[in-house]
Design a protein around this nucleic acid. Structure first.
Lengths: 235, 235
DNA sequence: GGAACCCTTTGACTTAAGTCAAAGCCCCAA
DNA sequence: TTGGGGCTTTGACTTAAGTCAAAGGGTTCC
C-alpha cells in the first residue's frame, strides 16, 4: 500500500519511520465504488478507518427511513475511532458494533482499516499518539456541538447560508479567486440530510436565496453574489 | 479540599497517591448557588472543571435568546476539557475561550478547577490518563451522536418518551422499586431546552402522554404507568 | 435519436411545533 | 392570611417545514 498516506494522517504525524512501518504491516486497504457500504451499524467492530481517496459519509437511518448525515470524511481523516475507547480493554470480546453506517460517496474511494487490537497496543506505549487522538476527538466534539447548535437553534435558511459560508471559508484558506463560489462535493439529497432537512425544502431554500440575489445556484456550483447579505442571513 | 473526590473522578482513577496529591495542590475549589454562572462562552480558558456536588448545565444561547442545553454534569464528571486539546501546546497564549456557558443548577454546587497548563504537563508523561480521557471523550461523542439522532430524526413526543426511558434505565441500575418513576433534577424549562423544544410544547406533550395513560406527571415526579406503550411511543 | 434513468424542482396540502397572551398553581414570607 | 413571584398550563393563532404527487431537465446507453 501507499506508505505516504499514513504520514499525512494527523494522529500518526508523531511516529518515526519504524513505527510507521509496523503500522503499515497491520493495515488493510479496501477500495469502494460510489454507493458501496463500508460498514453498517449492525456489524461487529473491527477497527477504525482512514479515508485515502474519495469521500465517505457517516450516517444514521431513522425507523421511518429518513437519513441524517453526521460526518463527511475527506482524505487523510479518520472515522469510527470512537468505539476503540468506549470500553478500553474489552474490545477483544467482539461485542462492539459500529456506531453508525459508512458509505463511499465517490468511485475509487480507498480506505485503510487499522485493526483495533494491534492499534491499542501501540497506544498504550505512546502518549504522543494519545494526545493527537485527544486533539482529534476534541475537534470532532467541537464540530458536533456546533452541529447541534445549528440544528436546534437555527432554521433551514440560516443553516444553508451558514454551510455555504463555512465551505467558502475552508476553501479560501488555500486559494483566492475572482468569482466567489463553492462546489458541492455531494448530492443535494445528501446535503439536505447533512443539514437535517429534506431535499424539497433545501431546493426551496436555494430558490429563496436566489430570488433575494444572495446566491446563484448552477447545478453543484453555488456562486456567492452578496456575501454581506449572506452573512446577515446566516447570523 | 476534599481529597477523596479526585479519586472518584474517572480520568484520575489510574493515579497513585503521590500524583493525586500533586494534582490536589494545583486545583481550586469554587462554590456556587443556583443560577450562578461558572463561566460564559466569552471568557478566556483557564482549565477544565469537575463537578463535586450539585448539578451543572452546559448551554448555548442563540441570537434570538433561545437556549439549548448540551450537557448536564453530575458529581464526579468533568466539563470543558475539550479546549485543552484543540490546539495542544498553544494554550499558553490564552487566546482560548470556553466553548459554551456553564451554570450551577442547585445551591451549594461545588466544582474543582484544574488549571490547563499544569494539567497538560501531567498528561504528557502519563499515557494511562490520556487513555482514560480518550475514553471519556468517546462516551461524550457517543452521547452527542445520539443526541443529534434524536433531534433530527424524532419528534418531540418520541424524544420525551426516550428521555423518560433512559432516565429510568439509569436509575434502575442502582435499585429496584415497586412504583416505576423518575424524578426530574431540572426545571421543565431546562428539560425543554435539553430536548430541543420549548416549555409549552413539553407541557402539551406530557399532557398527551397522560391522556393516553402512559405516564402520570406530578410536579417533578413522572410515574410510568405503561412501560410497554412508552417504549412503543419512543421507538 | 429516443428511451430509461436519476436527480431536482415545483405545486398543493398537511401538520408539528413555535409564538403570544392569559390564567392557574404553589410555595414562601411578611 | 394574604399577596407576590416563579414556574407551569392552557388556549388561540401562526408559521416553518414535511408529505405526496407530478413534472422538468440532464446523462448515458443502446
Amino acid at each position: 500500500m501507499d506508505s505516504l498516506i499514513l504520514k499525512k494522517v494527523y494522529i500518526f504525524s508523531g511516529l518515526d519511520e519504524e513505527e510507521l512501518e509496523r503500522l503499515q504491516k497491520i493495515c488493510r486497504v479496501k477500495t469502494f465504488n460510489k454507493g458501496d457500504i463500508i460498514f453498517f451499524d449492525t456489524e461487529p467492530y473491527l477497527g477504525f478507518y482512514i479515508t485515502v481517496t474519495g469521500l465517505v459519509k457517516i450516517y444514521k437511518i431513522s425507523k421511518d427511513g429518513r437519513e441524517h448525515i453526521l460526518h463527511l470524511i475527506n482524505p487523510t481523516n479518520t472515522f469510527a475511532e470512537v468505539p476503540l475507547f468506549e470500553n478500553f480493554g474489552e474490545i477483544h470480546e467482539d461485542s462492539f458494533r459500529y456506531p453508525a453506517n459508512a458509505m463511499a460517496l465517490e468511485d475509487e474511494t480507498r480506505v485503510v482499516l487499522i485493526p483495533a487490537r494491534q492499534f491499542t497496543e501501540l497506544l498504550e506505549n505512546d502518549s504522543k499518539i494519545c494526545i493527537k487522538m485527544l486533539s482529534g476527538f476534541a475537534k470532532r466534539l467541537r464540530h458536533l456541538n456546533h452541529h447541534i447548535e445549528e440544528l436546534t437553534l437555527k432554521d433551514v435558511t440560516k443553516r444553508v447560508s451558514g454551510f455555504i459560508l463555512t465551505e467558502y471559508n475552508n476553501k479560501r484558506k488555500s486559494k483566492t479567486e475572482a468569482e466567489p463560489h463553492i462546489k458541492l462535493l455531494i448530492s443535494k439529497a445528501d446535503l439536505a440530510a447533512y443539514l437535517g432537512t429534506i431535499i424539497e425544502t433545501l431546493s426551496r431554500t436555494f430558490k429563496k436565496l436566489q430570488d433575494e440575489n444572495i446566491i446563484d445556484v448552477d447545478g453543484k456550483k453555488i456562486i456567492i453574489k452578496d456575501i454581506v447579505k449572506l452573512k446577515e442571513t446566516a447570523a
